[in-house]
Design a binder for these strands. Structure first.
Lengths: 336, 336
DNA sequence: CGGGCGAATGATATCGATATCAAGATATCG
DNA sequence: CGATATCTTGATATCGATATCATTCGCCCG
């Protein structure tokens, strides 16, 4: 692809400019500009006349020209952090409902969504963006700092951390942990296990909430550190518990897949879910809902998160004061 | 959000232009432009000197200015068709690995990816794009025509159809159907069932391949029309077969979820998979792989599809001749 | 030695929209 | 009735990069 021969310099487009419209309407181009911009400086009558003319001739604003003049791009870059090891996860459903919300909110505000992966973020177009949204699980501090140096309004999806200065939007992971703990306590569970990766900021928050709430009742859960959140990893986790002859009666897994793997392993061991062991997953994936038995889980509202991310960047771009915000999650109690 | 007060007109940026660099280097701005553009018109020495200077001062190209002058946006708009009824599906993993491939290829060619949903495609920024990529299952003809009218180089993901003129990239759905039929025949199955939506172009192709291959052996499969491709729908499909006392020994389902639902219903009915009934799904989702029993399925290479889509638009933009192309799929035989 | 040729660089115009300031048209008021 | 305020419109400069044509300089060769 390096030696592409250019034969045609791309489509000619409609080629109609404001100057052309001005000539057609018998006014100056600045009047056209104002008319199309709904400026009250122009009579309602001429405004409508010019707008009709523009529609009729299929006039299209030249965004580059406007952006050049206004010194802004009307664009927000969305940078998706790809985890180097398991690149696959990036395109899992999770961050993508976020994208849906972001796209919806930004375009309805007249902004464009520029999609990039971390690798391409040095791109000139990204640097020209009016704002930045960072997505991806467990965004690391150094990466955030890198983008921060670009001096653009920036909002990050993830877990809030005391030491960083940037705006964060995310699910209230801590509260999720508390909710699950409360649930376990309310049904009389006394030996809970947490499966997840405590190095992952969001999961760490869940763990903290979980641990703190249980501590209030004199219970200390067992932490099963698992880097992957796959079904196999869940199976493996429970097997390791069994082989260590650990006694437990509840599992809080950091993903639905982990939870389903755990349940599978429990069944293999002859244990009953939820009679012997309660299990709660995370993310409310469609598979979890139709799992047998239907999985109890914590749901985050990704779509709304995306909308919120977008609103915050827009506010930042406008120079308004903005604060981090954590979205409530909901515990969905099904059969497990 | 309608009455946003603008306090600060956005970040000031580095504010360094080519003219500034020119002054610093003691040359004219056009020389700077050429130097940064690797033009051979400029001595290697001055070229490197200017590039070093640019790096040192953190010069950033103003994309809008360049785009204005060059009359192109170096942007490809990706329009994701959202199915009106079940908006959720849009953000399922499927089209999104496509996005990954597209993003990778376009940005490495110096293009930006502008993400929009169908609803926002009237956006000025979209119309300014150099090219269009249409994603979404079962893109309808009228929608395609709508975008076609924009006169931009366009590539569509989906099934190839004789009557339309635009470039299509997709998986070889027809061949998938043939492969599954061959598989069923090779293991002695004589009463196959197809579960899917024949109104969906891609699924229709799978059905055609399936039917045609079987016809060569005097076998006519049963078509079970199902609009949704959820687990429940799969369960329901098999139950309806049972209630109608249909005899069958193989199922080709158009999604892994459908297949898993079918298997669940089969097990409920006391049938053994794969002894009594063989089942093949579609998409090779992670859940299918760790399903019990591990699901046989057809895998499409989404990532590569994305790369291909991107390459085709770029070629079109360059004015090169481009043809539609179907990517090979692979039948993954696991336990079912 | 002078004409001509090629290499390196520069001056200027241009892409299309908008901000600024100026000017014409109309209205208001003493 | 004339002067000033108000409304509407326009001329010009500007955003930052690049295409085009011109220019300068050094060098080769008849």
């Amino acid at each position: 692809m390096s030696s592409a021969k250019k034969k045609q310099p791309a489509a000619a487009q409609s080629g109609l400019t404001m100057a052309d419209l001005a000539k057609l309407a018998g006014v100056s181009k600045i009047t056209v500009s104002r008319a199309l911009g709904e400026s009250p400086l122009v009579t309602l009558e001429t405004r409508e006349r010019i707008q009709a003319l523009a529609r009729k001739h299929g006039y299209k604003l030249n965004v580059s020209a406007r952006n050049l003049r206004l010194r802004r791009s009307h664009t927000v870059a969305v940078i998706v952090e790809m985890r180097p090891s398991s690149g696959r996860t990036m395109w899992d459903p999770y961050p993508l409902s976020l994208l849906g919300g972001i796209s919806q909110e930004l375009t309805s505000a007249g902004y464009s969504v520029l999609l990039t992966t971390r690798h391409d973020a040095a791109n000139a177009a990204v640097q020209a963006a009016d704002g930045l949204i960072l997505l991806g699980q467990g965004v690391h501090q150094d990466a955030v700092k890198l983008y921060d140096r670009m001096g653009l309004p920036m909002v990050v999806w993830g877990a809030e951390s005391a030491q960083d200065s940037h705006i964060v939007v995310g699910s209230d992971n801590r509260h999720s942990g508390v909710s699950v703990a409360e649930r376990f306590l309310s049904i009389g569970r006394r030996h809970p296990v947490f499966i997840g990766n405590s190095d992952h900021p969001e999961m760490a928050q869940r763990l903290h909430g979980f641990v703190d709430e249980l501590a209030g009742h004199g219970i200390k859960p067992l932490l099963l550190q698992r880097v992957d959140w796959t079904l196999e990893s869940g199976v493996d986790a429970v097997r390791s518990l069994a082989s260590r002859k650990v006694h437990f009666d509840a599992i809080f897994a950091c993903s639905d897949l982990l939870a389903m793997g755990a349940i599978r392993a429990l069944v293999e061991l002859g244990l009953s879910v939820p009679n012997d062991v309660s299990v709660v997953g995370y993310d409310d994936t469609p598979h979890g809902a139709s799992f047998l038995p239907p999985l109890s889980t914590v749901r985050q509202n990704w779509q709304e998160g995306g909308v919120l991310l977008a609103r915050k960047v827009l506010a930042l771009i406008d120079g308004q004061p903005v604060a981090s915000q954590m979205l409530p999650t909901s515990l969905i109690v099904r059969a497990t």
